[in-house]
Computed example of a mutant assay.
Amino acid sequence: MIGAFEDFSTKYWSMPSAASPDIFSTQVDEKCWTYACSPGSIKTSAGHQIPRTGSNMVGIYTYGMYRGSEYHEYLQTKLKEPLIPGNRYYVEFWVCRSCLVETASNNIGVFFTGKLINRKSTRSFYNNPQINAEEVVTESKEWTKISGFFTAKYPHEVMIIGNFHKDADTKIRTVEACNNKKLLSQDEAYYYIDDILVRVAEKTEVDEKNKVNDFSKLQKGESIILENIFFDFDEAIILKKSFPELEKLYRFLKQNQHIIEISGHTDNVGSKEYNKLLSEERAQAVVDYLIDKGINQERLKSRGFGSSEPIATNKDEVGRAQNRRVEIKIIE
């Protein structure tokens, strides 16, 4: 475990820029702005949440403006020992959206670098984080895990957490503040961070985000989730990083004469009517891709189920992410 922020002196943590994160604790006076309180309490700071574990947590802005410039906050720490180039690592940290903001964002990530940074300005960092939340994190009642694997290229010694993308490249969603009480700006996203872990990955561990479909094992009547298919937020536009998986499906269809059904599914955020339409459009987008590649459209059927067939809970972001999916089914 890298940190759960239990050392209140922040001995092991610092800020790489003049944009200052906030530390919240259940151990300070209840009248203090940084008092972390329960959801039922009255509070005038950045929310009503309590730490995931222990007494402390840190809060950062991941989206917004300050004096005419983009404003993101970051926290950094020096690793106990440098990463070993060639080794595969697992990273995990937990986030929770402040319930007093009306904007949620994605692009909450981890960037490993060579040395501690001490920038005197609030200018944001624009890098390619090794671990990043691709989906918008809307959950404010439960903590959401952000995790992933990466292979170290350099003996980096420092880990930084924050948003390393421009606001123009960050997806946002308007959400409802708790108890209809909003204290932060409508155009700012603010998250609590807790329980950060970096360790060497086991050889047998599989990255759930990089599962590989084996279409050859599909039998008539069977369905399979198309892994690694991504769309623009709230859109039916297929992102380029989906193309490798779609190419595998295309080659499978070229080698076989199956008729398949492609179905779209969503979470339960939004109206049933809108979700059904979005799921239909996303399924059709996959069909259109395959037709453009040369697959006969008579072999391709599409359906949209909206949020009517969940495979996980819709009560937290992890479950909702699983429910947002595209499936294929062999018809003949």
Rank of each mutant, 00 (worst) to 15 (best):
P21L: 04
F24Y: 14
E30Q: 15
E30M: 11
C32V: 12
W33N: 15
Y35V: 10
S41R: 10
I42W: 08
S45D: 12
Q49T: 13
Q49R: 09
R52Y: 08
Y61F: 10
K78A: 12
P82G: 07
F93T: 07
W94Q: 08
R97V: 01
E102T: 15
N107Y: 01
V110P: 04
L116T: 06
E134C: 08
S140K: 11
T144Q: 07
A152Y: 00
Y154H: 12
H156Q: 15
E157M: 11
M159F: 01
I160Y: 02
A168Q: 12
A168T: 11
D169I: 00
D187T: 14
A189Y: 04
Y191N: 09
I193G: 03
I193V: 11
I196Y: 02
K203E: 06
T204I: 06
N210S: 12
K211D: 12
V212L: 10
L218G: 07
G221D: 05
E227V: 06
N228G: 11
F231R: 14
E245V: 10
E247C: 02
K248G: 04
R251K: 09
H258E: 05
I259Q: 14
I259S: 13
I262Y: 01
T266N: 14
I295Q: 02
Q297F: 04
E309Q: 15
P310G: 11
A312V: 05
T313P: 06
R320V: 05
V326Y: 03
